[in-house]
């Protein structure tokens, strides 16, 4: 029974790989022959599927040519060295084709990068960036302060929320009863969903909700921080030593105290270190969020770049670099002290 299932799995793997190979080969051929520049990957998919399935079916029955069988080890251990097996060559081919088709799909072009025209424009831009306009320094600093405080508030509000949530998102604490498992899965799902949406998108949502300005940006950062911190915290809880928790449970203490005494002292230092790192990330992310109107120094950047005022942008970049550098320095000092 198990063996039959494995053979089906192996065939699925083979089919997947061959469909992918047919797909990449088509991209490379199209590019070389210059037939089509349209993105019709999706529309062409049925033909790739049929071709891939066909090749996979044929090769599946030829000894040593099925990658799926090799991966799942359904065949007996082969005496052949790995570099003599056909499946090794298939893997190499997949890797090479991925690089080639990736090159074409992302329109990699050394010509564009090193064209005279482009280089001239870049030189002009960089010379402006490196001769910053110090007149905008006061404005840049004021906006930067807003950015730093946005990041601080987002982190600060996220800490207690993530701290509480992390216990419900830790598998080892939530696997006793069915209701615990349900809570665990619901919390995990919501967190993953929240985390998969970039803060930039959240910022746009909150701008619609609470209006343009730093509050929207702070909310976006906060939501994302809660999701990421909870994940990091709960993973820390999952990696803890069960012993002290068991010992406190065995004294007959309330389960909440079991966690407070048996779990929290073990995880508090990693928690603090994650939190500081998160604040660091939030400062940098707050800048990006400003680009869509979430307040702070990012707003200034988008204004000046829109007007092609590169000297002013150069000034802001210097301010940003100073902030990132000092945040980095500060957080490394604090993390060192916590050990």
């Amino acid at each position: 029974m198990n063996k039959r299932l494995n053979i089906i799995k192996a065939f699925c793997i083979d089919t997947g790989i061959w469909v992918y190979i047919v797909f990449t080969v088509n991209i490379v051929l199209n590019k070389i022959s210059g037939i089509s520049h349209q993105k019709t990957y999706y529309e062409d998919m049925p033909s790739y599927l049929v071709q891939g399935l066909l090749i996979a079916t044929i090769l599946f029955f030829i000894k040593g040519c099925s990658l799926g069988k090799d991966i799942l080890k359904t065949t007996l251990p082969q005496s052949q060295a790995y570099y003599k097996r056909p499946s090794t060559y298939i893997m190499c081919m997949v890797f090479l084709l991925t690089i080639l088709s990736g090159w074409y799909i992302s329109e990699f072009s050394l010509n564009d990068l090193f064209s005279m025209d482009g280089l001239e424009k870049a030189t002009r831009l960089f010379s402006s960036l490196f001769s910053p306009n110090f007149k905008v320094l006061p404005k840049a600093v004021s906006e930067a302060i807003e950015t730093i405080y946005m990041a601080f508030m987002a982190t600060f509000v996220a800490i207690p929320i993530s701290f509480l949530l992390s216990f419900f998102a830790a598998k080892n604490l939530m696997s006793q009863t069915i209701s615990q498992k349900i809570v665990y899965n619901v919390v995990r799902f919501i967190l993953n969903y929240t985390r998969s949406v970039e803060p930039l998108i959240w910022a746009i949502i909150f701008i619609v909700w609470v209006g343009i300005g730093p509050f929207a940006g702070t909310l976006a950062l906060m939501l994302h921080s809660v999701a990421s911190l909870t994940k990091l915290y709960s993973e820390q809880i999952e990696n803890m030593d069960d012993g002290p928790y068991e010992a406190i449970k065995a004294t007959g203490a309330h389960p909440i105290l079991g966690i407070w005494y048996g779990v929290v002292p073990q995880i508090i230092i990693p928690f603090l270190s994650f939190t500081i790192y998160r604040w660091d990330i939030n400062v940098r992310m707050a800048t990006i969020i400003g680009l869509v109107g979430g307040g702070g120094i990012g707003e200034l950047i988008i204004q000046y770049t829109g007007l092609s005022m590169w000297n002013e942008v150069g000034m802001i970049i210097i301010v940003l670099a100073a902030i990132v550098w000092s945040m980095d320095y500060l957080s490394s000092i604090i993390r060192q002290a916590l050990k």
């Binding site: 030593d241 012993g243 002290p244 068991e246 010992a247 406190i248 065995a250 005494y261 002292p265 073990q266």
Partner: peptide, 11 residues
Amino acid sequence: MIFQQFNLIPR
């Protein structure tokens, strides 16, 4: 109960 790994509360 006492344990092989003592299981004291760290810190």
